[in-house]
C-alpha cells in the first residue's frame, strides 16, 4: 500500500533540495540555464519580483502555460507561486502537477486575514517568515518548508539576514527556557504550543529552512548558509544581472562551498554587474512585500 502526500513525503522533498539553489525563471530558456548551472529546483513565474515591484498593480499566479512549458523542459522540481490565502490558485497549481507551491508575499495577497490551509493539499508548500512565530504559524497550517522573506526584488540581503538572525535567536531563547515559560512564549509569538515545544526540545525547526529575498551574489548565498539556512532561493538576482549563466553557476558553487573562502573568492571573479539594488529605507510601507502575511 502506497501512502501519498504524507508529511514525511512533503518535507522529504525539501530535505532533498538542501545545500542547493532554487532559481526564479520566467521562460523555458531561463529554466534550462538554471538547470545547466546546477539549480536544484526552479520557481516558474510570469515576472521576477523586481519587475513586479517596478510595474506595480496586482501580481497573481502565473499563466499555467508558462508553468507547463517550464515543467516540460527541465527534469528538476518545478515550484510555482500562489497568492497568500488564494487556495483556488493552489488547487490549480496542484492540478498542473507542480512539485512545490510557494504561498508567497511576492504576489498580492488574496486574503488579508488568513493563509491557505495547506493540510488540504497533497502537494507540499513553502512559506516565508520574518521570525519564529510566523514560521511556526505557517508550519501549523501545513507548510513543509520555510524560507526567510527578506525583501524580494531588491538585491539587498539585509532583510533576509535580519529575518534569519531573528529566527535563530528566537529558537535559542526557547531552547534555554524552563518548560513553564513555553506556553506564554507560544502566546506571545502567536505560535502553536506543540511546535514551540518541538523547537524548545530540538533547537531547530521541524522543517527545512531556506533563505530568500535579496540574494544577489555568491557571497550573499554563502553568508546566509553560514548563518544557518539549509539552502537559498535566488529570485531577481540571477536573470537581472549582466551574466546570468556565470552568476547562476557561481551561486551554486558558493552554496555548496559556503565555508571555503578560497573557493568563494574564485567563483566571485568576473561575473559582471549584479542586479541594481534598492536601499530598503527608500521603500514606502506599501512597497514592502515582507509585511504581507498574518
Amino acid at each position: 500500500m502506497a501512502e501519498f502526500g504524507s508529511l514525511k513525503v512533503k518535507t522529504g522533498l525539501a530535505e532533498m533540495l538542501k545545500g542547493g539553489v532554487i532559481m526564479d525563471v520566467t521562460t523555458p530558456e531561463q529554466a534550462i540555464i538554471a538547470e545547466e548551472a546546477g539549480a536544484c529546483a526552479v520557481m516558474a513565474l510570469e515576472r521576477v519580483p523586481s519587475d513586479i515591484r517596478a510595474e506595480g498593480g496586482v501580481a497573481r499566479m502565473a499563466d499555467p502555460t508558462i508553468i507547463q512549458s517550464i515543467m516540460e523542459v527541465v527534469s528538476i522540481p518545478v515550484m510555482a507561486k500562489a497568492r497568500i490565502g488564494h487556495f483556488v490558485e493552489a488547487q490549480i497549481l496542484e492540478s498542473l502537477g507542480v512539485d512545490y507551491i510557494d504561498e508567497s508575499e511576492v504576489l498580492t495577497p488574496a486574503d488579508d486575514a488568513f493563509h491557505i490551509n495547506k493540510h488540504d493539499f497533497k502537494v507540499p508548500f513553502v512559506c516565508g517568515c520574518r521570525n519564529l512565530g510566523e514560521a511556526l504559524r505557517r508550519i501549523g497550517e501545513g507548510a513543509a518548508m520555510i524560507r526567510t522573506k527578506g525583501e524580494p526584488g531588491t538585491g539587498n540581503v539585509v532583510e533576509a539576514v535580519r529575518h534569519m538572525r531573528t529566527v535563530m535567536s528566537d529558537m535559542r531563547a526557547l531552547s534555554v527556557m524552563p518548560k513553564e515559560e513555553l506556553m506564554t512564549a507560544a502566546k506571545t509569538m502567536g505560535a502553536p504550543y506543540e511546535l514551540v515545544l518541538y523547537v524548545a526540545e530540538h533547537g531547530k525547526l521541524p522543517v527545512v529552512n531556506f533563505a530568500a529575498g535579496g540574494i544577489a551574489t555568491p557571497a550573499d548565498a554563502a553568508l546566509m548558509m553560514q548563518l544557518g539556512v539549509d539552502g537559498v532561493f535566488v529570485g531577481s538576482g540571477i536573470f537581472k544581472s549582466d551574466n546570468p549563466k556565470a552568476r547562476a553557476k557561481a551561486i551554486v558553487m558558493a552554496t555548496t562551498h559556503y565555508n571555503d573562502a578560497k573557493i568563494l573568492a574564485e567563483v566571485s571573479k568576473d561575473l559582471g554587474q549584479p542586479m541594481t539594488g534598492i536601499e530598503i529605507s527608500t521603500l514606502t510601507d506599501a512597497q514592502r512585500m515582507q509585511d504581507r502575511g498574518w
Partner: peptide, 13 residues
Amino acid sequence: RNAFGRQIASFET
C-alpha cells in the same frame, strides 16, 4: 528518473 511521477506521486510504503 522520476519514474513514479512528479512530487504529487511521491509516497511511502
